[in-house]
């Protein structure tokens, strides 16, 4: 049993609970023990950086410092938004050993924070356990599942230490190890719109449309994400996108714009490992993969 620190972030505790549920099950199966940081706070996500960068970094760094105080060497962060915010803040701590942020942190009893390794679960599954181990745990290979793996921006950019910023493959590899077919398409790391679906909806929806249309046209019958915000945009806004762009799609491609099931990648791995639909929270996604389930 290898143990890891765990920083959940706000999303998996509210609208994306099924991501956390499935993540914990999959981690347990591979033999990873997750310990949640006691009293973690919101990372501030991207909005904070737009108003006061120093405050943003200080707030985010509190979590890093708590993790170290609670003796964590590796910290698993399932949301790529949180991942990038924490990573940026840690880079700052590494580069600035005696600035105002460091001093304010120390003063508030928050030492360190620059050493704990920040990891997305995909990185942990792929690099610490590996596709072979996942393969050995598969009980129900995902026959007939044609999966478009969507990586989004913030795990691979700007720090591309987990995978390539434009042509990543580790999520595809994991899906293949679960018996699914990986659908190749060029927009694996194209932006899902981030907060734009909420702030400038017309632009946000267009970005989601571009992704969904491409995934469909390349033959996908399912999409997996690895970030709660990406998932929210593709899953929750899909019906709006179809309403708005359905006709345009039909005109351009001479076929109907059918909705795709959008799942958290851990839900899909969990299914392959034999966990039940309900345990993985799949009922909580907007378009359930009912037809695909029959195949396994």
């Amino acid at each position: 049993m290898k143990s890891y620190g765990y920083y959940p972030g706000c999303s998996v505790k509210s609208s994306s609970k099924s991501y956390e549920k499935s993540l914990l099950l999959v981690m347990k199966s591979v033999g990873a023990k997750l310990k949640e940081i006691d009293d973690w706070n919101c990372c501030g996500a991207t909005a904070y950086f737009g108003t006061d960068e120093k405050m943003a970094k200080a707030i985010a760094s509190r979590n890093l410092s708590l993790a170290e105080q609670q003796k964590m060497d590796d910290l698993i962060i399932p949301c790529t938004g949180c991942y990038l915010t924490l990573k940026k803040s840690q880079e700052h701590l590494k580069e600035h050993k005696d600035d105002n942020i460091r001093a304010a942190l120390d003063e508030a009893g928050l030492k360190g924070g620059d050493k704990v390794a920040l990891r997305h679960p995909i990185d942990v599954l792929y690099n610490d356990f590996g596709v072979e181990q996942i393969k050995s745990l598969v009980k129900k290979p995902l026959k007939g599942w044609k999966i478009a793996s969507y990586y989004g921006c913030q795990l691979v950019r700007p720090y591309s230490d987990v995978d390539h910023p434009y042509y990543p493959h580790i999520l595809d590899d994991l899906m293949v190890s679960c018996g699914a077919e990986a659908v190749d398409y060029p927009y694996k790391t194209r932006c899902c719109g981030g907060a734009l679906t909420g702030t400038v909806e017309d632009v946000g929806l267009r970005l989601v449309y571009i992704l969904l249309a491409e995934m469909r046209n390349r033959g996908a019958n399912c999409v997996v994400t690895m970030c709660p915000l990406c998932h929210f945009n593709l899953d929750v806004y899909q019906s709006k996108v179809i309403k708005k762009f359905g006709d345009e799609y039909e005109k351009s491609f001479s076929k109907k714009f059918e909705p795709l099931p959008i799942l958290h990648f851990t839900q899909v791995i969990g299914l392959a490992m034999g966990y039940k639909y309900s345990e993985l929270g799949i009922k909580e996604v907007m378009v359930e993969p009912k037809a695909l389930l029959k195949a396994i």
Partner: peptide
């Protein structure tokens, strides 16, 4: 008319006071 600064301000407010963020609250305020 841009909601982004409002969104950012609301988030800052909540996080400074409570340490956690509530998606629903921020979205409605925005």
């Amino acid at each position: 008319s841009m909601p982004t600064p409002v969104l950012a301000k609301e988030m800052n407010n909540i996080i400074s006071k409570r340490g956690r963020n509530s998606e629903m609250y921020v979205a409605s305020m925005m």
